[in-house]
Design a protein around this nucleic acid. Sequence first.
DNA 1: CGATTGTTTGAGTATGGTCAACCCTCGTGG
DNA 2: CCACGAGGGTTGACCATACTCAAACAATCG
Lengths: 250, 250
Amino acid sequence: MPGQNGRSSPSRRYSCGNCPLRPLPAFEKQELVFVDAFKKGELAVDKGATVLVEGSHSAHLYTVQSGWTFRYKLLSDGRRQILNYSMPGDLIGLQGSLMGEMQHSVEALSPMLLCVFEREALPDLYRSHPGLAYDITWIASREERMLDENLLSIGRRTALERAACLIAFISSRAKAVGLNGGTPVRIPIPQQHIADTLGLSLVHTNKTIRKLMNRKLIFWRGGGCEVVDNERLKELARWEGLSEDRRPLI
Amino acid sequence: MPGQNGRSSPSRRYSCGNCPLRPLPAFEKQELVFVDAFKKGELAVDKGATVLVEGSHSAHLYTVQSGWTFRYKLLSDGRRQILNYSMPGDLIGLQGSLMGEMQHSVEALSPMLLCVFEREALPDLYRSHPGLAYDITWIASREERMLDENLLSIGRRTALERAACLIAFISSRAKAVGLNGGTPVRIPIPQQHIADTLGLSLVHTNKTIRKLMNRKLIFWRGGGCEVVDNERLKELARWEGLSEDRRPLI
DNA sequence: CGATTGTTTGAGTATGGTCAACCCTCGTGG
DNA sequence: CCACGAGGGTTGACCATACTCAAACAATCG
């Protein structure tokens, strides 16, 4: 089990008014002032650090400003299942905020910057800003939708389809948040994590990824993969793609 | 593919004030009057009927008053993955209400009675009743949590553990909503559905269930199973059980 | 009493798992 | 500048879990 504690940064680089994610669509909110007050600070986290632990009661709720995380659950004998990945704009720890105890852990895949919110402020937000409340429910619902897709994959797709689907899925999401600075989308996820996401062994995952490489659909380099042909990946996986609708932030 | 259309019942048997689910804890809401107005009618659905179809845009949101449903997704070649089951008190179609298009289908496992709400009324609910809005988010979050557990199961548990886990899980939920009229909890789910939930073939599911029967953990009868020893099921599955906290309705 | 739907069983196969090396790259320290 | 070690990635051999096919059986319902 990897994961040390991250370190907190007292300084606050961004007010929500000039959040680096603002260029994204659907961030035109009058609620900005409120969110800005709701935001309690920022947290810088090292790669490999554990942000939230299963079983704990966190007083905070986070938003990803930059970096990648993954959510996972463990079985008592150590088997790990990765549930989903979070990238900039995603909420972290909503489940825990609403229901008390965290039922999954969250770990940083890369150095990250998180925005910190107080769990206690949530009811207040619901009282004073129904639009934001609605957005939060929307976000929770979208997470549910992603889990649905994942379940379909793991339950009913073959190893090759699963791998193709996961990579196409992540790459599509990354594109949607504008992480494609360099033209080919880079996915910084080691094969062990891919395996724990797909419900496969490391060895078989490796062989499967190799097949995708031989078909020239992806390319592996420097501990992560680059997508060569997203369309053919989707086709191979029989995946319809992300439905493109509005997406609220915070 | 089974599933015909259900039939609608214009009559309205229950006002929310004397909802048959009222005896459940955490239903002491001042919002009752509002919910009662929010409720647009009731819908009686036959066993096997399709309540909502993937790809459609439903104007309604439902609540289960009685009966069982399941949510599922299909791959283009017909492979089916069942995502979760709904029982009395659960919301149906929230995802579709928030995001427009349904991304999964819903089918009745038994004759059911649903409460019908207008999708358009949702923003109004958020504006005027933050407490209810919070409850809805809570419910969405709980669904997410259940999906997390499911993913862990399908991704990382063996067939035997998976089956044990699913049955223990459903039986625990059924107990929580008070469906244990008769002492042993009865789960009215055919083996084909169990298979499609666990990501296994029908044949292997049957052999697995048989093992659970031989161990005297469950008992199969009349197209459904009865739980004999929930504790040993949980132990076998390495499953911690449902966390018991408040549960809002509607 | 057939028809239908759901469950059971066996035989043979295939997908994916385990074990055990080996290899490559990169960062550290002599 | 090179040796070393650690973390990932790669490969082959062998094994096991789960799948497919096929057939039979049981219960239920007009």
